Simulated assay, not measured.
Amino acid sequence: AVLKGSGTVIAAPDGRVAVNPTGNAGLASGGTGDVLGGLIGALLAQHLPPFEAALAGVYLHGLAADTLVAQGDGPAGLTAGELAPMVRRLLNRRFYSRNRTAT
């Protein structure tokens, strides 16, 4: 279960609970929860276990908003449509960066 809000809470049926450290007030706009749901769904479709998909999705969602705000694109006026492209950039930087060495 994901309770979206300030300090989004992620909980599993087995009792595991986490509070996400990323995100800001820009995520309190229409459609951002839909983006979050789609992101978690995409991670589930890639065979991540449900709790881990929720953790990663919530973290990336919040990190995208934090990055946009750091670049001056919010929090006021941040739109849901800006989040997915930023998540893509963050994932590409982390996993496909030219500076990353092969393991």
Rank of each mutant, 00 (worst) to 15 (best):
L78M: 14
L60Y: 07
A70E: 14
L63P: 07
L90Y: 03
A84E: 04
A80R: 11
P75R: 08
D34E: 13
V58E: 01
S97L: 01
L48E: 06
L60H: 06
L63S: 04
R93Q: 14
G31C: 08
M86Y: 06
V87Q: 08
G72R: 01
I40P: 01
L63A: 15
D34H: 07
E82T: 08
L44C: 02
A56L: 14
A70H: 05
R94Y: 10
L48A: 09
Y96E: 09
V58K: 02
A65P: 11
L83M: 02
L43Y: 00
G57K: 05
L44K: 06
S97C: 12
A76N: 12
T79E: 11
A54K: 07
L55I: 11
F95E: 00
V58M: 04
E82A: 15
R94W: 11
S97W: 02
R89S: 12
A84L: 14
G41M: 04
G38T: 05
L43M: 04
A53H: 05
N99R: 07
N92A: 05
L91T: 08
L48G: 00
G77E: 01
F95M: 01
H47D: 14
H47W: 01
G72Q: 04
Y96F: 14
V69L: 07
Y96V: 02
A76Y: 11
V69S: 03
